[in-house]
Amino acid sequence: MTRIKRKKLNLAVKKELQKWLLIRITGIVLLCSLVAALILYFYARSEITSSFFDAHLKIRRVSDLLLPVLLTGSAVSMVAGLLLAMFLPQKIAGPVYRIEKDLEQVQEGELTKEIRLRKGDLLMDLADEVNKATASVRQRIQEIKDNYRAAEKAVRAGNDSQVEEALHRLEESLSRLKT
């Protein structure tokens, strides 16, 4: 049984994206903690002497007193988590959706398509790399077309040496594409 060697965790990849996510998630966690602490403070701050004596038959454990605090803190954390889950992925999902739609056109043969994202989108680097790759493929295909036209022209002219040279260039162009 061969063991698959795992790659080490690389925290230096996409530092800006990692920093952006870390700041947002840490901010939400801190905000939830602050709100939960404030709720606990206001519950704990209220005077309970008269209500304690009135409720001594109902309250048996400290957890009975803290249950409303825990439920309120949990509800606030849940709402904050839902907000984070709704809005944070949009900064990533929007550009991913745009890239997918543009790549569908490239897949259909539209090699002049360039992916354009809004300024400041998180996946601008990815879009730029896809645009470079598409431009490179487009350039190679254009080179193949040019060499094909030259070979076709040489065949029509009946010049065997030009035909051979054009076919050689065409073969070289095709050999640069790995399929």
Score class of each variant (00 low, 15 high):
M1G: 14
K7G: 14
V13K: 03
Q18T: 13
I23H: 01
R24S: 11
A37H: 04
Y41P: 01
A44Y: 04
A44C: 08
R45C: 07
E47S: 09
S51H: 04
F52N: 05
F53H: 06
D54R: 13
L57I: 10
R60K: 12
R60V: 12
R60S: 08
V62S: 03
L67P: 01
T72H: 12
T72N: 06
G73P: 09
S74V: 14
A75I: 15
V76M: 06
V76Q: 01
M78A: 13
L83Q: 02
K91H: 10
K91E: 15
K91D: 15
P95A: 03
E100K: 10
K101C: 12
D102K: 02
Q107F: 08
E108T: 10
G109S: 03
G109F: 03
E110T: 12
L117M: 05
D121Y: 11
D121K: 05
D125W: 00
V130H: 04
N131D: 03
K132L: 10
A135T: 13
S136M: 10
R138Y: 05
R138F: 06
Q139N: 14
E143L: 08
I144L: 01
D146I: 14
A150G: 01
A150R: 10
V155L: 09
G158D: 01
V163P: 02
V163Y: 00
R169D: 15
L174F: 08
R176P: 06
